[in-house]
């Protein structure tokens, strides 16, 4: 089985601050990490590899420093890593990104394409489904679990608002995975020692199958109008009183705010 996993390097948003004047992210000194949903997608692929054998490829689109997450993926146990990087890809929104990735994926044989549900820097959840559309493949989003049934079909457990949906899907297909699906393995020490001995294939525009007009800024219909930080709420008031008195205080406050009449 050939599995491809799309991964993205993102700023660790748990440590990020927003510039109150410009509304943009302050990326200085913020560590970059493999996007958590993608990492769970990678773990899902590696579990399939452990269980019944699979060849796992990771692919990322990003600036040169995104090489780090590909090395991390090698240290976790993948077989092949592709770094999609070219000035022509710069300024891409989700649509242009998915075109570039689909262009690369047309060059790779796979039975299963895994992406994370969404990246913690943009939270759009669009790239995975868009790739599936460009490649005209069946897609299942919000995956919690996946089992290979043999004979080219997978049984999948999909998270929906009211519960779960169980699906049987034929390969090749595209899935997007939730970080709650599993707990990704650590890089192994031996894998880390070898990570920089392995080759990361660097692909640019010439290596992929895509129309140039669909790429980068030109291929991006989305533009950011304005970014702003949500204002901080003032500290709440704390009363340590009996229940009856507390109810009275709450009603009084709600009336003051004209929420109750």
């Amino acid at each position: 089985m050939n599995i491809v996993v799309c991964i993205k390097q993102v700023p660790d948003t748990t440590e990020i601050k927003i510039d109150p004047k410009t509304g943009t992210l302050i990326r200085d000194g913020v560590p970059s990490i493999m996007n958590p949903d993608d990492k769970s997608g990678l773990e899902m692929a590696l579990q399939l590899k452990d269980e019944q054998g699979a060849h796992v490829t990771v692919i990322t689109m990003g600036p040169p420093q995104a090489d780090l997450i590909l090395r991390e993926a090698y240290a976790m146990g993948v077989d092949r890593a592709i770094h999609l990087t070219d000035r022509k890809f710069a300024g891409a929104d989700t649509l242009a990104t998915s075109h570039a990735l689909a262009g690369a994926l047309r060059k790779i044989d796979f039975d299963l394409l895994i992406t994370g549900r969404q990246a913690i820097d943009g939270d759009t959840a669009q790239v995975g489904p868009q790739i599936a559309e460009h490649l005209d493949l069946p897609q299942v989003s919000y995956l919690e679990d996946l089992k290979f049934d043999g004979d080219k079909t997978f049984t999948m457990k999909r998270h929906i608002e009211e519960g779960y949906q169980m699906l049987q899907v034929e390969a090749p297909c595209v899935v997007t995975v939730l970080s709650s699906a599993n707990s990704p393995r650590y890089m192994s020490v031996g894998g880390i020692v070898d990570a920089y001995q392995k080759e990361v294939e660097v692909w640019g525009f010439n290596e992929i199958e895509v129309d140039e007009k669909d790429l980068g800024l030109k291929g991006s219909p989305t533009s950011v109008h304005k970014a702003f930080a949500r204002g901080l709420k003032p500290a709440g008031e704390l009363y340590e009183v009996e229940t009856d008195e507390a109810v009275g205080i709450i009603i009084k406050k709600l009336k003051e705010k004209f929420i109750l009449n």
């Binding site: 780090l68 991390e72 650590y186 890089m187 020490v189 880390i192 990570a195």
Partner: peptide, 12 residues
């Protein structure tokens, strides 16, 4: 580079 990757893993 390997030690940087290693430090990330072991801290985590």
């Amino acid at each position: 580079k390997e030690q940087v990757l290693f430090q990330q893993m072991i801290k985590d």
